[in-house]
Design a protein around this nucleic acid. Structure first.
Lengths: 364, 364
DNA sequence: CTATTTTATTCAAATTTATTAAGAATTTTT
DNA sequence: AAAAATTCTTAATAAATTTGAATAAAATAG
């Protein structure tokens, strides 16, 4: 065995090391075993082997045994590609998300992949990085790969594309983010009710001035959660002020920015409901910077119950959205669509659940 | 348009709502357009169309135009499946991780998927949930799907399987976690050096009693980081005590447990280096519980620079491992392997980088 | 100006690996 | 010997690529 190491630096400043091993072993060129080989080896025809493989009738028990022995011996595994060509299905699903590094999506992805596996499907995964062009590209690629169905989490921009799929009865479901005009079947959560529940909880703790860090009306979920906030206020008979609402984005920094503004107001809010946990955690920083405490001086609530929420100090009160269940339900709905191939759209809305932790408190 | 809503509860206590839309539109059954249709439509043979598609020579400019027009008109896109059958490649890569909800993997995944896309490859994704059986299953599935190569992050258990792939010259690389006996090519980080750097930094701040929260020698990276810790101590001339080392796991709670033990010792450590950020953040909780401050009373350092590390308060000093770059490099190495098809193993080791934040301080 | 060679296009047929329907061969039953 | 039941084989099919042959046009030679 010959070994050599090479160290070198590259323009990123990362130094990499090469360790190369040369193996001198029996030379063995991999040749794929086909159904023909099995047929020849077991002295039957390919169609008989096919019947054995697919557990169809009209096969002698003895023949079956012989064929299975050959399959095992030669380590044969049918080519999904050839099978897909004939049967026009691939047993592969497509899954397209805007950003896997957004903490909501890994759990969703796990739910999807796990459930798909249970049903015998593999999953081709795309991360579009919020790029509409890539979204479109992904759809085309997945179709040319002949996936049996797709699960997407698209922005408004490409809903038209999804509508086209529906026209063709190509199985597709939108997950996590709602399909704005319900052009395809959807799995989502009841954002209005969820935010309503959150704000109602804060009101029940005695808070009357509740700020809201929203992602703005640019995202549907943001708009819905804002609606829930408003609904809770309306029902309580109290009124909120416009300056208690701050529009941020999907990242934590905007929570910090918003909270800073809230704290600088003459009559600061006593509680804040953030549209997602990351903003809530960002808000923490602004509170600490002012030398204030949570929940002593101000109560903070998030939404989504991502992992971070139970790791920060104090642990964040939030709303669980059952992301893995959403992913699983997405696959199940997709499989239904694949079976039916109708143009009916279903919309399955999950209720969410309040998770009370340490970032909120009762005030007199 | 007919709409009906259905509400129902299920055993998980989640209430879901059904909104079903019935569309009555022109009935349109999707029929795939094939190369034959293009040939017929443009009055040439399929082989000519194929030559146009693959930009091969020996095609009249005028013919090419005619064919391309037909392609556009009929909205034709070649079947990757049929193409895969003939060419024996699918333009699909496999990517298998133990746990996508582990905060290190999403970034890795993004790097892999993004780079693969740039090179025209799609990625079939598996999450094994640390199940060795599922790992094996994934390999078999990916092979029957005729992926062109795979990127895995396997535990020691299935290294034998990977070795078999190598025997067959099936392109495969191990990423993030090192391949223990280098049975296949690897992209990893220099864990020893990385931990060495971390502890050396703490020593440079004046800390002489540094605790280490390790994942134990059960994981290779844990063992290597422990080695780095020991190396730094050895070099400094100081000695560490065995009770300053606590073995935990991949989850945050064990950081809390370990830190509690550290703090209860008669002569507590003044700094702690955790093998990964989650443990470090878990340790925070134990410190706060005692009414102590970070870094006032104790400095804490993590490893991996996951998103959480800059969201906690104080922001965690840690080590960046360039996870997205690792993912990208994984794809590039895999593509090299695919081109060469040799039995040579490469090992590319990335250096890591110290990220100083607010959880560590100089002591006199 | 015809005959031959060269060049540029284009086509028909084989190939890839599996499934499946139709029909042939064999065995069993009537 | 005919009919029925069982089991297997042949050939078509899926949608592309590829090879060697065919055709047509252009160039060269006699």
């Amino acid at each position: 065995m010959l070994v050599y190491n090479r160290f070198y630096g590259n323009d990123t400043g990362i130094v990499t090391k090469y360790v190369v091993f040369f193996y001198f072993r029996s030379i063995f060129v991999f040749m794929a075993v086909t159904i023909k080989d099995i047929a020849r080896h077991s002295g039957v025809s390919v169609s008989t082997v096919s019947r054995v493989l697919n557990k169809k009738p009209d096969v002698n028990t003895e023949t079956e045994l012989r064929v299975n022995k050959a399959i095992k011996k030669l380590g044969y595994s049918p080519s999904s590609v050839a099978r897909g060509l004939v049967l026009k299905r691939s047993n592969v699903l497509g899954f397209v998300v805007p950003d896997i590094t957004n903490p909501n999506f890994p759990e969703l992805a796990r739910g999807v992949v796990e459930k798909a596996r249970q049903y015998g499907y593999s999953v081709i995964f795309f991360d579009t990085n919020h790029d509409n062009k890539v979204e479109k590209e992904a759809i085309n690629l997945l179709r040319s790969k002949q996936v049996d169905g797709i699960i997407v989490s698209f922005s408004e921009a490409n809903q038209v594309e999804l509508g086209k799929l529906k026209e063709e009865k190509f199985p597709a479901v939108q997950i996590y983010r709602k399909s704005p005009n319900s052009v395809i079947s959807t799995i989502a959560i009841d954002n209005v009710d969820s935010a309503y529940k959150a704000v109602k909880y804060l009101l029940s703790l005695g808070h009357k001035q509740i700020g809201h860090l929203t992602t703005g009306i640019s995202t549907l979920s943001g708009a819905e959660r804002l609606e829930g906030y408003q609904k809770a206020y309306k029902e309580s008979g109290l009124v909120y002020r416009d300056e208690w609402i701050f529009s941020g984005s999907h990242c934590a920094d905007t929570g910090y920015d918003g909270m800073k503004i809230f704290l600088d107001q003459k009559e600061p809010v006593t509680a804040v409901f953030a549209s997602h946990d990351l903003m809530a955690v960002g808000a923490y920083e602004a509170v600490f910077e002012k030398g204030l405490t949570i929940p002593g001086d101000i109560s903070i609530m998030g939404h989504d119950n991502i992992e971070i929420s139970r790791l920060v100090h104090p642990k964040l009160t939030t709303i669980d959205t059952y992301k893995d269940k959403l992913g699983q339900a997405g696959v199940e709905l997709l499989l239904e669509e694949m079976a039916e191939r109708s143009r009916i759209n279903r919309e399955i809305i999950f209720k969410t659940e309040l998770v009370v932790r340490d970032s909120t408190r009762q005030i007199s």
